[in-house]
């Protein structure tokens, strides 16, 4: 097992190098380029443009730009943003905690809700509970996030008023009320709408996988055997079913955790959340190579890492899988 993990980690290095080359090459293809922001501005003369091209290091050959970036990474640096002129690491460091705060809470919320819901839905297949939950899952899945977010804002922020203050019932965006002391209520109030959108979205997916996994297990012969032996239903489910039923969900979770670090672009956009999703999107718009490279490689590294962790957890949960 240790040897297996070690081998996989070694394999990850060339994989990540390959990805970084691919991403770097793709990035050069961003239409517009980093100087697009200086265009269409009467104050920027053609001479200014040529000078900026030189001074921002854009005249250096591409392969050399890549090697410079790689060298910087090996020194624990991610280069400097072409736009804000600040270290890319600082730019990312300012957004990452905000994103993990929102996505993390939403993810845990969805997970903690989905396991029991999926389990009960499967065991009581076609009960009213199952129908209600399946419906809810379908709905959560089928509603476009940005549309749902906007409807929530119009409802809870624009239309409904707080009876005590006369202000909006819930804040329509941001992480806290600016210029006031931080209180728990205030933070929760700001978290409520964006987290609900994310939870409903994640929940549906998780419940479906949990339910499907559990249903499969319930139809397996060993469960029927256990039933036939007269074991209590709860015992059957917990002892024999659960561990196998959670397998599909584990795969899904392994795919999702790295995404938490990327932030939820649409939710962050609608709820003015200063997170990674928006940093990523504005970096594309601005062709801010260093920041974009940092964001994308962080995400790639996590995906590779969690791919490995998923496989290990799989092995732990399913003894039929052997690693050689």
């Amino acid at each position: 097992m240790t040897r297996y993990i070690f081998r996989r980690l070694l394999q990850a290095i060339p994989l990540l190098l390959l990805i970084s080359i691919a991403v770097f090459a793709l990035m050069q293809a961003i239409p517009g380029g980093p100087l697009a922001a200086y265009e269409n501005n009467p104050n920027i003369s053609p001479e200014d443009l040529m000078r900026l091209q030189e001074e921002l290091g854009l005249n250096v050959p591409k392969w050399q730009q890549y090697l410079n970036w790689l060298g910087a990474v090996l020194r624990g640096d991610l280069g400097t943003s072409l736009v804000t002129r600040r270290p890319a690491l600082t730019e990312i460091g300012e957004r990452l905690p905000n994103t993990l705060y929102l996505s993390g809470i939403a993810f845990l919320g969805a997970l903690l809700l989905s396991i029991p819901v999926g389990l009960v839905s499967a065991v009581r297949q076609y009960s009213w509970f199952d129908h209600a939950m399946t419906t809810l899952a379908f709905m959560g899945y089928s509603i476009p996030v940005f549309w749902f977010g906007l409807v929530l804002i119009i409802l809870f922020n624009v239309t409904l008023k707080n009876p005590l203050t006369g202000g909006p019932l819930l804040p329509g965006g941001g992480m806290y009320t600016i210029g006031e002391d931080l209180t728990l209520e205030d933070r929760v109030a700001h978290l409520l709408l964006p987290a609900s959108v994310l939870i409903l979205h994640n929940l549906s997916n998780h419940v479906r996988y949990m339910r499907a996994g559990m249903l499969d297990v319930l139809h397996q012969d060993y469960i029927r055997t256990a039933h036939a032996k007269g074991l209590k239903e709860r015992a059957v489910i917990m002892r024999h079913g659960f561990k196998n039923a959670i397998l599909p969900l584990v795969t899904v979770i392994g795919l999702e955790i790295p995404g938490l670090f990327n932030g939820a672009l649409l939710t962050e956009t609608i709820f003015s959340w200063p997170g990674m999703g928006r940093l990523f999107f504005t970096s594309i718009e601005r062709a801010d190579y260093a920041v974009l490279m940092g964001v994308l490689m962080l995400s790639a590294t996590l995906i590779v890492l969690f791919g490995l962790i998923t496989d290990i957890v799989y092995a732990f949960l399913d003894p039929r899988i052997r690693f050689d």
Partner: peptide, 11 residues
Amino acid sequence: DFMLALPHLFI
């Protein structure tokens, strides 16, 4: 893994 690790939204 490679395909998964590629940034999809970006691409």
